[in-house]
Design a protein around this nucleic acid. Structure first.
Lengths: 201, 201
DNA sequence: GCAGAAGCTGACCGATCGGTCAACTACCGT
DNA sequence: ACGGTAGTTGACCGATCGGTCAGCTTCTGC
């Protein structure tokens, strides 16, 4: 056994608990998840959970903060970045972010409004709100706003809550899913000049 | 005071409680909503809630069952109906259904997988699964499946969870929202022959 | 006017919640 | 060999949960 190469014990328990908590939060919700459930699911006692994390809220924060920071970075890039392919890059990066942080996004989607009292959730809500405002500003047509909302909301839904409605063996591979999502969203959000018919009826 | 024309008292309390419960379920979730909260919000006591409804679960069922029945009817029409404008009609009716049952849909979206143990939720899950399977069968391309999932999931998200991220005074009127949704979804789901480029890569 | 049903409520129950605390074990450097 | 620290746990706490029950008021049919 090496001295510190393998994280055999040190950070393992904390990570296992964090992962178990994230899964529970994403599937049954924050309020409905008890520390006992998390402990059981990870193979520890409830006391151990509270040893590694000061509170249930701290556990939630540890579980989803990285994804929120990443989203904020993507959003800042969009708000400040160059003007050529801004939207396209934003959507691409958000799709990737959704794919890599499915559970964290799921937690946020199903708990965002109700847990806005928690600082970490409030931070995420503020970021999403910033994005919504930016979109509503530069897309004055309601239809264009709806287009954007359907695109991002649909992608988020498809990768999180929507997964529960398809049998596991029917789920496409992640890379195929990512490719399709990029294509569909790029098509949906293409500026009007690239579209075929400008709404016949 | 007439004898039975005005439902002055009879059904009023039950309806008020049902409405209060639906709002709480949709915003903070079923598990996180206590009977006490519902009672306080409606101006009754917790005991009154349990007088009008046998249990918390019965209250949930009373609140969302109509929307589920309506959805099942729309779905049956789609699965059995004529072949000319099936998809278009399905999407149109689902959009209208979403608009008229926002809170019930919200409850289902954020609680569907986690509350599948409840019969009423299991029924709704089965219906959505039927829809997903039908779509996956007649649209063999993953991209087309993603297109459909983004469209319906995006519409559902936009009308429920997504609303929390826009200021109330920036929200478009319902009829305008409905018109835009119909247009965007019809465009997104148009059969490939009406689309501009049939997926170049 | 009066019996009885309907509506409504506070008191109460067992269970479970998040969180605290003291004690035990295992491993560390010296 | 030993003191100290990190990790883990069961016992326990007050609060709140969903749900029961007996009793109170109000309205209704006769």
């Amino acid at each position: 056994m090496p001295t510190d190469a393998h994280p055999t014990s040190r950070v393992r328990a904390a990570d296992e608990l964090k992962q178990a908590a994230l899964e529970q939060f994403a599937t049954v919700g924050f309020a409905a998840t008890s520390l006992q459930h998390i402990a059981d699911h990870a193979g520890y006692s409830k006391s151990s959970v509270l040893y590694h994390y000061a509170s249930k809220e701290a556990l939630l924060e540890a579980a989803i903060e990285p994804a929120i920071s990443e989203f904020e970075a993507v959003l800042d890039d969009f708000l400040l970045g160059g003007r050529s392919d801004r939207r396209r890059r934003l959507v691409d990066r958000i799709v990737d972010l959704l794919l890599e942080n499915r559970q964290a996004v799921h937690v946020f989607i199903i708990q965002g409004p109700s847990l806005s009292q928690l600082p970490i959730i409030a931070r995420a809500n503020a970021a999403v709100r910033r994005l919504a405002e930016a979109i509503n500003q530069e897309r004055e047509s309601v239809t264009d706003q709806v287009r954007f909302g359907v695109a991002l909301g649909g992608a988020a839904f498809l990768l999180t809550a929507g997964r529960a409605f398809v049998d596991d063996d029917h789920l496409p591979a992640d890379d195929e899913l990512a490719a399709s999502l990029h294509a569909v969203l790029a098509d949906l959000l293409a500026p009007a000049d690239r579209r075929s018919t400008p709404t016949t009826d």
